[in-house]
Nucleic acid binder design. Structure first.
Lengths: 132, 132
DNA sequence: ACCGTACTTTACCTCAACGTCAATGTTAAT
DNA sequence: ATTAACATTGACGTTGAGGTAAAGTACGGT
């Protein structure tokens, strides 16, 4: 089961560099079941195929969109059971939607927080008179 | 040095309830130097005066405005050195301002995140066709 | 004197998403 | 065969703001 070096397989260091994450992250994701364990050499070294990499990029994309690892674990479980991407998509849509809601609530809170601060700031400045 | 019970002194449990925080929080703030250690009975029980309580409310207000305990520690240090409230106010204003900036940056990021998500969502829906 | 409640300190636990060793193993190239 | 560079697993550390539990005082009322 020998694998030839970096033909269309990549090992973890190079891959992590090209993805802009650390090896720790890739191993963690694997351990959490977010990505499939890649093939190994006899010595135990991970070699990632193009498919593996596509999957990882998908996960990173979702992370970028703010999904938590916990949520992605859930998706991965669904995927693991059915192996059908169109099974997980409705759930992904749900997650994205509720995430969008959360973001809008968060924005609302932050906005009102900013208003509170500026109000409070005004009170301080009026009272202590430190314009700048 | 006996103290009479709850005349205008309050002990920690009652105070925490009236402030809507736990005793843990009050002790932590004291330990971190955010508030002055209150008087104690001979037995070691904390009794808070009105002034103590004002100070605590101030801290809680700042927390509500999103200052971190670390930042409040800094203010407390300045206050501890000078004992002059008008010394800390300029710094507080600074902190509030930079905090406001951070909030607006955060809001900006969240907004663009929301846009990304809806875009991504659209791509999924278009491709997999799950309107719902 | 005793009870029950509130208080005290100390110390470890929580969550998320990794970072950072340490000790050891594998591989490619010389 | 050796070495340099990379890989492996495992375990502990980090950040923030407390939560929670344990074991032991203190206090007020009877």
């Amino acid at each position: 089961m020998k694998l030839k070096t970096s033909e269309d397989h990549q090992q973890i260091g190079e891959l992590s560099r090209s993805l802009g994450v650390t090896t720790r992250t890739l191993r963690l994701y694997e351990q959490m079941g977010l990505i499939d364990p890649p093939q190994r050499t006899e010595g135990g070294i991970r070699y990632y195929t193009k498919d593996d990499i596509r999957r990882i990029k998908f996960v990173l994309k979702l992370k970028e969109l703010g999904l938590s690892l916990r949520q992605m674990q859930e998706l991965a479980e669904i995927y693991g059971e059915t192996k059908m991407p169109d099974k997980i998509m409705p759930r992904l849509i749900e997650l994205l939607d509720s995430h969008t809601d959360a973001i809008h609530r968060r924005i609302g809170k932050l906005s009102s927080l900013a208003r509170d601060i500026s109000e409070y700031r005004k009170r301080i400045v009026d009272f202590y008179g430190i314009p700048r």
